[in-house]
Amino acid sequence: MIPLSVLDLSFVSADSTPAQALHDTLALARHVDGLGYRRYWLAEHHALPNVASPAPEIMIGQIAAATRTIRVGSGGIMLPNHAPLMVAERFRVLEALFPGRIDLGLGRAPGTDGLTARALRRREAPGEGGNDDFLDRLQELLFWDGGFPEGHPFGKIQASPAGVPLPPIFLLGSSDYSAQLAGEIGCGFGFAQHFSGMPAEAPMLAYRRLFRPTRLGERPHAILAVAAICAATDAEAERLAASARLSTLRRERGEYRPLPSLDEALAYPYSDSERAQIERGRDKLHVGGPETLRATLTDLVTRTQADELMIVSAIPDQAARHESYTQLAQAWGLGAVSEAA
């Protein structure tokens, strides 16, 4: 079985606070570190009441310090929001403090609405006036690690701390754009199946087909991020999934509210059209008992040729959330995977 990892958005629940969500993230990281999960990645989102994750680089340091062996990284840093030199230096600091345990996942989207993106960048956001400079920023970031061409104005600047390389780079996406680019430059790739509008097979296989070895990587490494909820039985997993399903329904209507409690979700009066909408989205949230979920995810791995699965679980009750990751780890044989790695 391939490794399992965790993607955490620091979900804010209706009966909690954003500050508590950050502490819940630390607690979950310590929990899965002991279960043998490979990576723990933090997302970047801004001005959203349902997640508390605007600064993954800060949380990466906190989590790496609180855990023993799990790799910790960004899923991802939204590169258009940041100066490449700042990204390079922050992740060099993390790599210097926790050598061999840091990942740098990069995204192209703003991770927020257009107005907030403008506030972050103090200029037009991508999509406004054709101002999408992701490729320019990515090239500059790679130059900070590999050296600028002769005559480049930044060539005399030394990124700090000197002598520390950038951690492994992954391009993240929910379409085939990042898959193709990641393959062409030879870095890792992460596909967000949990919110993508397209099936995962095409971009995952395209990345592998287009991969060219470079200094960034000798062979492809494709991570498939999926939403999954596991419990002792199929019925209990379906019950726990009620919060995530209602939250997704609201998000698709533009309502970014905190994750509803299980009681609220179970009591929600769904209309026929809303129930139909939930049914159409069942392939985005994988739910079941250990054996059911193992079979579902194994089939998905086979179809996408994923090298690694990254699990995001939106469960408001933290004990149930921890247990979901425990049940899946046991069903996956994660201890054996960890020892083999």
Rank of each mutant, 00 (worst) to 15 (best):
S261I: 07
R215S: 14
A265Q: 02
L266I: 00
E218N: 11
P213T: 08
A231N: 04
R215P: 06
H221P: 04
A267E: 13
T214D: 01
Y270D: 06
E279G: 05
P220V: 04
V226F: 07
P213M: 10
G281F: 13
R245Q: 15
R250S: 09
R250W: 14
L246E: 08
D272C: 04
L240M: 11
A237S: 12
A241N: 02
A225K: 00
L259Q: 05
R212Y: 00
Y268H: 10
E252D: 14
R212I: 08
E238V: 00
D272L: 14
T214L: 03
A244S: 06
R257V: 08
A242D: 08
G217D: 05
A244F: 08
S271V: 01
C230S: 08
E218R: 15
S271Q: 03
E264R: 08
L266V: 08
G217H: 02
A225R: 01
R245N: 12
D283H: 15
E255Y: 12
P269D: 09
D272V: 13
A242T: 01
A228D: 01
I229V: 11
L224E: 11
A265K: 00
R275H: 07
Y270N: 02
A228L: 06
L216R: 10
E218I: 06
R219L: 05
D234Y: 05
G217N: 05
T214I: 07
D283F: 12
A225P: 04
P258H: 13
G281R: 15
P260I: 04
E255Q: 14
Y270R: 05
S271Y: 03
D234Q: 09
A237K: 02
P258G: 12
Q277R: 14
Y270W: 13
A225I: 00
E236K: 14
S273N: 06
A228H: 03
R215L: 10
Y268S: 05
A267L: 12
L216N: 09
R219I: 12
D272M: 06
A222T: 02
A235T: 06
E279F: 07
A244L: 04
D283R: 14
Q277H: 15
R212G: 03
R275V: 03
E218L: 07
H221Y: 14
A265S: 10
A242H: 08
H221F: 12
R215E: 12
R275S: 12
S261W: 07
D234P: 06
Y270L: 15
I223S: 02
P260W: 00
A227H: 07
P213I: 08
